[in-house]
Design a protein around this nucleic acid. Sequence first.
DNA 1: TTGTAGGCGTTATCAG
DNA 2: CTGATAACGCCTACAA
Lengths: 341, 341
Amino acid sequence: MTTRPPARPTRPPLVSVKITDVAALAGVAPMTVSRVLNTPDRVSAPTAARVRAAIDELGYMPNLIAGGLSSRRSRMIAAVVPTIASPMFSAPMQTFTDTMAENGYHVMLALSGYDQASEDAQIRAVLARRPDGLLLTGAVRSPPIRELLRASNLPVVEIWDTAEDPTDVLIGFDHAEVGAAVADFFVRQGHTHFASLSARDPRAALRREGFAKRVAHHGLTLLAEKVLDAPSSIEDGRSGLRQIVGLLGQRTALFGSSDLVAFGALTEARLHGIMVPDQLAICGFGDFEISRACHPPISTVHVDGAEIGEMAAREMLARINGAVTPARIAVPFQILPRATT
Amino acid sequence: MTTRPPARPTRPPLVSVKITDVAALAGVAPMTVSRVLNTPDRVSAPTAARVRAAIDELGYMPNLIAGGLSSRRSRMIAAVVPTIASPMFSAPMQTFTDTMAENGYHVMLALSGYDQASEDAQIRAVLARRPDGLLLTGAVRSPPIRELLRASNLPVVEIWDTAEDPTDVLIGFDHAEVGAAVADFFVRQGHTHFASLSARDPRAALRREGFAKRVAHHGLTLLAEKVLDAPSSIEDGRSGLRQIVGLLGQRTALFGSSDLVAFGALTEARLHGIMVPDQLAICGFGDFEISRACHPPISTVHVDGAEIGEMAAREMLARINGAVTPARIAVPFQILPRATT
DNA sequence: TTGTAGGCGTTATCAG
DNA sequence: CTGATAACGCCTACAA
């Protein structure tokens, strides 16, 4: 081995170091380098050590694009969610992404904005990246996409919703049941008059309908059922309450489609001099920090988005590794009575 | 060539239609199919039509992994952010992701949780995917990583911070200036006693220090400077205020490191019977929805996270396309006086 | 345990 | 405008 003068910078540009360079330096075949990286137990200790030394010296970074093409495993997951601006989705995305990263998977993010056509397009677009799995929000409602996904045999984890017919695995709960449970909760407290303030998204609609049906089932009165134009926000809760305030009775129980809406309603109610909970009882949904940390704390439905994300990651990994898993996983929800009911 | 029996049923390919199938059906070379997809203007109309028909008939989805390997452009961007649980980061991520998607780029998400070592590790990890660009939060502080990025010649867009020395392009503002501006604002209102409640993250620290320095520069009194343990949350704002409430004077001006902290402080102050803004003036940071939509609305520093995300996307695209862009882009911030000051 | 051969599906390049 | 050829960098499969 001759000592070369350090001609150009000793280390070649990192991005251009490839597996053959490492192999040459370590005096092994490229395949051995690959094994050191991917299946270390199939390489003898001394060889592995030499290879690792070469890797360090050259600052080698494997090219996962090339590896993915060859192995047909991209080690990437595509996630299609409506938005990450709401805790409803940012919480599970956070834990999902973290857990997948711990296992060597990266997550591609695609935002669909509650729009069916956009969701379809996003799913098609991400499939071109050949992800090893798909994380979706709610059940896929478009038949051609469903068929495409089923035919692809790709692990598909759907969260938040309990569809009639899951594409693959589904983690969530029945949103209509949530609405019904809230109605029952109010009824147990002696309420006879009800209202709802609901964002315009499919799952919020299910909760609203479940609530309304249960109120009707009890033979009680739904005074107002306001569907907001925008996705859930505090401002929507406030304007929504302003719009229904004239319809409310002496003692009304209000179900908001999220804690943001509920907080908005609470804020506006107090400005109108409406006593909470005596004149207006309020229950939100989601158990976001605001409902817990504001004053008075808002009653809500607890659902653990972070846990759903983690479960989704575990299911995803299990399926990638070939495990057969149940097609439907129910996540519990729980009404948390606080000061507004 | 002998026909082998199918060994084991390994996983059937996601979408087994490949470019050669389309080419065969359309009676053209694979390269022509590629051109129809990537440079349509270099293909005659009739040929393109035949190819498109074949694509539709077969439901062909190009394999971007293979394309990326060949073209050395992955059409993916890696984003390394502390968290998406805070609007501070979810807002720019949302617009960045959307804008990049509109231009054919997908975004890989990596969460670093405010931890320097984790950020370094995440950056290294995503580089193995050969992204076409990197979106980072704040300037890279780790010298080896900096060097790695510079050597890689990869477009790197750093947002939120104005570093001493940007790696590549930097979009943000000077957080110390924000703190100073808030101090000046309070001083103009006649305040003489101050306090701050600040999350434990680098940029919040800069704002806090800028605030403290300016207070000192005016020769005025900083009664309390509480650094919270956790990242910014409402609960932290509440507990923080509880901890400093004994230190506050007759009329104090409080700077919170985010609107969540400010809202928490406001909530707690009212519970303590402290008049806002007469006894305690509060200014937050970030102009999150809560500061605008709560009551009383909280004075804050407006910074447009969504716009920063969009600018970041434009800068990214420009650099990917070879444009020379300024290395430092100042984004304005603006104090919004509302009811708490 | 290690190596060799070949190909993963696409695109750059150059020729026609 | 279209095609043939040769990579892109790595890993599967098989051989030694």
